[in-house]
Design a protein around this nucleic acid. Sequence first.
DNA 1: TTAGGGTTAG
Length: 650
Amino acid sequence: MQSGELEQAVRMFYRMNAVEESRIRPDAVSLCNILPAFAAGRASKQGKEVHGYAVRTGLVDDLFVGNAVVDMYAKCGLIDDARKVFERMEVKDVVSWNVMVTGLSQMGRFEDALGFFEKMRREDIELDVVTWSAVIAGYAQRGYGYEALDVFRQMVVSGCEPNVVTLVSLLSGCACDGALLHGKEIHGYVIKQILNLIKNDHGEEQMVINSLIDMYAKCKADNLARKIFDHVAPVNRNVVTWTVMIGGYAQCGEANHALELFSQMVKQNKPTKPNVFTISCALMACARLAALRLGKQIHGYVFRHRYGKSDELFVDNCLIDMYVKSGDVDAARVVFNNMSLTNVVSWTSLLTGYGMHGRGLEAIELFKGMRKAGMPIDGVTFVVVLYACSHSGLVDKGLEYFETMTQEFGVVPGVEHYACMVDLLGRAGRLEKAMEIINQMPMEPGPVVWVALLGSCRVHTNVELGEYASNKLLELGCENDGTYTLLSNIYANAKRWKDVARVRFLMKDTGIKKRPGCSWVQGKTGTATFYVGDKTHPLSEEIYNLLGDLMYQIKALGYVPDTNFALHDVDDEEKGDFLVEHSEKLALAYGILTTAPGVPIRITKNLRVCGDCHIAITYISKIIDHEVILRDSSRFHHFKNGYCSCKGFW
DNA sequence: TTAGGGTTAG
């Protein structure tokens, strides 16, 4: 409810009091008009007074008034008061029960809501579409898609006809865990219902179609989602239709498609104005791709189209995240500094940024500022602070924070904090101390802890501990390409080719494929993507020629190819050739060819940067007139004048 | 009178 409406309701209320004094009694109808207004405005004080009036006058015994009072208390968060009134009602109907079921569900007491639902069934109260929809929505909001689907089935069996609300709730539940994709008969049913809605010209089918698109996109069936999207005539698409499709692509890792669609949205003949949801989805896509240029354009769009005060905070937080992940943490800081209002997300996003870019000291300063500003410091804050220490090699500072987080802040370390400590010590090469921390853990070390240890074993070539960590991961059922690849790399590093072959065989046997390494550069005309040994780019010949030149030049400066990273069981000369073809080197050469002197080259890699590429790019940065900003799956590396910002902590 | 769709930090 708008605040104006609430004021109006309050005025009505005082007029009603005056009326009471003049002995003209407001009737049930007036109470049923006023109570929902107080419910919507969460105005429990006024609501209570009206309740008092209803008791004094006996109007509370009216079924509709009773229901409105219960609903008012429930909506104001006073669910126990709601329940007391409900219990005292002599005559109840299905609405009285429905109000309690939804009230409890929305107060986070879903178990109790289900208790009421069961009681309704036991007492043979005829359930209506609102009861069923409320329970389906309750499951859906908690991410229990299968349960929502199950209740939906029971509803259909009982003969109760679903409506738009039911379908929208069901689909939002199915979007959480892909349940609908496994229930084809329900799919058919939903489609039939939508067709019915369209045929009967309800005008509400758009909402169901939007939910359907969202559900498919969230179930990673983005092709299917797009099919439906394309099927909807452009005039019938509203801002949500666009947003769910853009957000769906962003979450499916199809950020390019998301951004194409965003451009299409704002360039239509009669454009649909993106709202904050759309903006945040588009910025999320930019952040994933590190698409700084497009992110800046969206920033410009936001600036020109001034969003409301309450939306500003949300959009600014998304902008900070976009700038941080696109490699421009200083731009993120400017956004932060210009915010009239910040919240914990704003601070944490920027803190993460300083961590990712290896600017640990600034992260620590920001953390101090966060305390001064009175922001809540919780477990998440410490994950970020420890991460920042870890990526800047601030081992002692990290150990200090780990000690004080409980003593000073009352935050008990969870598995994720131990994982940060293992990472912190591991990156710094203190593997024994990392193992000591693991042995001291009061809980079972989860996969995150072993992954952190395994990663460090890879960097610091510790075969024994690496084998131990990967065995632990396999015991925990983490049979993914990352575990096997890291282990295989550790063996290859130690020249244990038989073991490499064994791991590769295991991968083949279990059908696990290594994700191919892939790097991309944002050029003026779009994104150029490269895989290992890629020769598909139109500039391929120039790229390889330039790389050949660069290799020749840096070898003269002292660069020796680190063949440990080639990981093929061939002789060293051949390995050198494989190394030249790594995706990050190809991306860099393309960047040099297409970027004006003095302008930074921004590269993104889906996996961690290869050690040899890291050394090579450090050398190359001595002889080119560009800063190279490389984001890998772990952090940012800023290469300039023969130096990398990561200082070896990667 | 009661139920409903799309966003941010680790």
